[in-house]
Nucleic acid binder design. Structure first.
Lengths: 147, 147
DNA sequence: TATTGTTATACTCTATAACTATA
DNA sequence: TATAGTTATAGAGTATAACAATA
């Protein structure tokens, strides 16, 4: 008995497929997926380490090294908060902004290719349903808009 | 301009949501996601290290440690191939089989919950479309059937 | 000589616990 | 005392390069 019609199986396979695209495009930008995710979060907002860790769903101590490495690449920088001398605000650099925009563009293109084989009507339906699923659950910020 | 209707964005968010469920259920079984994936692949077939590495998309040298750790947990075992003395065949142990079946059951349940809020008609449509997407692309084996 | 698998080494990501500095 | 962030330490996952054993 095949399970091609099993929702769970479809979700898992699809998610691994998308993750592989995400990883591939990250690498093409010289980033790990986690670094790309970090930079995507910072597209919209400059955040302190604590907020950033919470947004990414990792410990502050884990974030320290992650930011260190991306900072060493020159894509983000820390600045001391004006309101609170304890707080480090992390922000994209000029180069970092370009890198993440390129990343987002390429990822979007590759993901669109993934569904390009389907009729538009199907794509719209799929997008609608997928959108409903994610809006009804807590989803980590991973692909923020530059708005 | 919101991008709720953007396919790429929906795909990424959905994939991270599914990955978080996969990770959560793995942990509940005392496994890392990679260990769970390894065991899922072995549900259907006993494989040599080279084939297993290829299936998982990692280097043989990376697989050595991964199998070591799962073997230490008692969930898989290596046996020398009868045809080729160089080859180690990896197989699930009795306990390992129970663990992976439990993992699969819980993951399936949690993933079904994810779409439980949607009318059946929508779920079926979504499953159909997602199934088409993955069948038209190379998807790593991550949720094999026990058949 | 080619293939199978392991070892050595290095790096990224992650967590927990302990710490410093500031509020 | 509580919060922001870092450091120390440990372990998992990964890759590359070099190696041993077998085909």
């Amino acid at each position: 008995m095949s399970e091609k019609n099993d929702v769970a199986s479809a979700l898992v396979k699809l998610s691994f497929l998308v993750q592989s695209v995400y990883a591939e495009v990250s690498e093409a930008s010289g980033l790990t997926p986690q670094q790309a995710q970090l930079m995507c979060v910072l597209c919209n907002q400059n955040l302190g380490m604590a907020q950033l860790a919470q947004t990414l769903g990792i410990e502050k101590s884990s974030l320290t090294g992650l930011v260190d490495r991306v900072e060493k690449l020159g894509f983000v920088s820390r600045k001391v908060s004006e309101n609170d001398a304890r707080s480090s605000i992390v922000q994209l650099t000029k180069i970092g902004t370009n890198v993440v925009l390129k990343f987002r563009g390429e990822a979007t293109a590759k993901l669109n290719e993934l569904v390009a084989c389907m009729p538009k009507r199907y794509r719209d339906t799929f997008t609608d349903i997928a959108g409903r699923i994610v809006t009804e659950h807590e989803v980590p910020a991973v692909f923020n808009q530059v708005s």
